[in-house]
Amino acid sequence: MRTLRLLSSAPPTALFGMTVIALYALVVILAPWIAPHGQTEIVGLEFEPWGGDYVLGTDNLGRDMLSRMIYGIRNSVTIALLTTLLSFALGSVLGLLAATLGGWIDQVLSRLVDVLMAIPAILFALLLLTITGTGIAQMIAIIAVLEATRVFRLTRATAMNVSVMDFVEAARLRGEGTGWIIRREILPNITSPLIAEFGLRFCFVFLAISALSFLGLGIQPPTADLGAMVRDNAALITFGDMVPLLPAAAIALLTIAVNFVVDWMLHRASGLKS
């Protein structure tokens, strides 16, 4: 009932966003059942056009484009989600600790994050990838750590705002331990900014991973991936064919959707405050 009322107050952009997110979730879960072919299966000639046997044609190796798209969404979204979760696990825990404990722990962590953030993330990722070599695991770890610095900053800042409140001081004066203060006093008061941040971080991670894959440095063939698919079929664009743009559009659509929903959440949160 409350959920329904909440949804009815959502602007069309947010409703559109939620619908798209739900659709993507379905694709991710149901990929093996809805894809007509396997993701690495060569079904026809190279670059067969749209329509006909294959709804979206075939790619540079003669694989079914539609199936590649479906699996690409599944792979890219899952990896991005995993990376975001990892960066949150790292960043938010450390951010909460820094804000609650303060002192030298906060100093050390904050200065470390300052230094890491002094290098634009994508450059750092490229440097680390050179060292570790390309691979899904390496990429997840690298992006997760780099994005965790942003999560750390936000978590620390919002948690700081809460931790100076009198009710937190009251808990400290009562003699509560750090664990209680974080879990019961601070965390419940910063969940909404953290959820919004999760959405934004997911977008950044999703874009960063697809960018690396586009550069040939991310998810490696033959695994289907949206960024790499753009690169593989880029040659078609010179012939005015839009097929290579489809995977990129799939990325854009999901990030737009998430951004719309987050924007609405943030707008609501700020509106309620004032």
């Binding site: 006093e185 419940p188 008061n189």
Partner: peptide
């Protein structure tokens, strides 16, 4: 300070809005 010492001195704040956890 021991828990017993803490118990014996309590505090009430000026701004009740920030003195109570809004999520409890």
């Amino acid at each position: 300070r021991s828990r017993e010492q803490l118990r014996r001195v309590q505090m009430i704040y000026q701004m009740a809005d920030t003195a109570l956890n809004p999520r409890q």
